[in-house]
Design a protein around this nucleic acid. Sequence first.
DNA 1: CCCTAATCTTGAATGGTTCAACTTAACGAT
DNA 2: ATCGTTAAGTTGAACCATTCAAGATTAGGG
Lengths: 155, 155
Amino acid sequence: MTTTPTPAADALRGAGLRVTAARVAILDTVRAGHHLDVETITGGVRDRVGHVSTQAVYEALHALTAAGLVRRIEPAGSPARFEGRVGDNHHHLVCRRCGAVEDVDCAVGHAPCLDPSDAAGFLVDEADVTYWGLCPACRADTAHSPSKGAGGTAP
Amino acid sequence: MTTTPTPAADALRGAGLRVTAARVAILDTVRAGHHLDVETITGGVRDRVGHVSTQAVYEALHALTAAGLVRRIEPAGSPARFEGRVGDNHHHLVCRRCGAVEDVDCAVGHAPCLDPSDAAGFLVDEADVTYWGLCPACRADTAHSPSKGAGGTAP
DNA sequence: CCCTAATCTTGAATGGTTCAACTTAACGAT
DNA sequence: ATCGTTAAGTTGAACCATTCAAGATTAGGG
């Protein structure tokens, strides 16, 4: 066996990265999951191959992100999360209560996302849109026990 | 003197918060600056009144944010920043190199910002848009010494 | 088969933010 | 004007995600 033929392996090789068991497992884990954080990814990786150090996971995720094989998102107040869907410029819905993340396609038809009315001289290359709200489960949950409403001015 | 009449003091009182020298200074500092981080705010506060603990600043910023008197933004990979412009839903331009932040008004005319094509059942209450790119200064800088371009595949 | 650079490992350090327990002072009521 | 309640502030330590450092391995082109 010269090299294992796998979608993930091919992707790594194509990006000029070395094909190691750890990195294949990392890419597979990220692609199989949805917006996983580093801890969860590390767990998934260890389920596939044996032990892999946390630092190796961090470093590999950096490399994969730089190579454009995975995308890193970081909703305010959360640890970084990674997803395998790259290339298309999609955005995210984040639940304020449970932190759940879902994908959303570009807001309006084309990419108005990339046209701030006044760029103040900035050379913009990406628009990062995060929609904050409550996921279906938390909506139902909050309806019963409104722990801390965001709209009430009256006592 | 029963209480000091100041825009900041009035705002605090109006929000049901106590008017203390520290909080007035914090609000004044945030309002006078542009997207300051906690460390900078703490410095500004200490220039106005004497010593104020870092924790007091954190707690006050939480309270002010909850009261809607300041807004907290947290571009991926940066510490939190605070701004005094609240109420209008504006967005931000962030420089990838130096971290500079500038305000931008809502992308397209009205608020399409708040209409993900498919909300996946989420109850969305806010759209957070961050435009990433290079500020004017860093654009000029990078043109001369391209430390690490983001677009070059050729060596 | 060999060599070099990329990758992985262990172990420690960093930095922003938060938690805990106690003291101080703002301000509505007396 | 004084008192009591409780928000606000203080000090000091703890947390957690992420990064840094230095040495051991190994993928893969030559």
